[in-house]
Simulated assay, not measured.
Amino acid sequence: MTVATAVASAAVFVWLGMVLAISFLEAPLKFRAPGITIELGVGIGRLVFRALNTAECVLAAVVVVCLVALGGSTPAAAVVLMAILVVVLVLDVAVLRPRMDRRYTSGNVSDAMPRHSLHLWYVGLELVKVASLVILGISALTHLPA
Rank of each mutant, 00 (worst) to 15 (best):
G137E: 08
V65I: 14
S139G: 15
A140Q: 08
A78F: 05
S73Y: 03
P28E: 09
G71V: 02
V65E: 08
V88T: 13
A27K: 07
T142M: 09
V123L: 15
A77F: 05
V7T: 09
E56C: 09
L118R: 05
A8H: 05
V109H: 03
A27C: 05
L127Q: 05
S9F: 15
L91Q: 04
L133N: 04
R115K: 13
M1T: 08
V12C: 00
E126G: 08
A140P: 13
L89R: 11
G124W: 06
V68S: 03
P75F: 13
R102T: 08
A69S: 14
I135M: 08
G137I: 11
V80Y: 13
I38D: 07
V130G: 06
A60P: 01
H116F: 02
S73M: 13
A10T: 13
L91E: 00
A131K: 05
A77Y: 07
V48C: 03
R99C: 00
L118S: 03
T5G: 09
L127P: 00
V90C: 12
S9G: 12
G35I: 01
D101S: 07
I38A: 09
L144R: 00
E39M: 10
V88N: 06
S73A: 14
A33Y: 03
T105Q: 10
S106F: 06
R115I: 08
R97F: 00
V109T: 14
V130Y: 04
V62K: 05
N53L: 12
A61D: 03
G71C: 12
T54N: 07
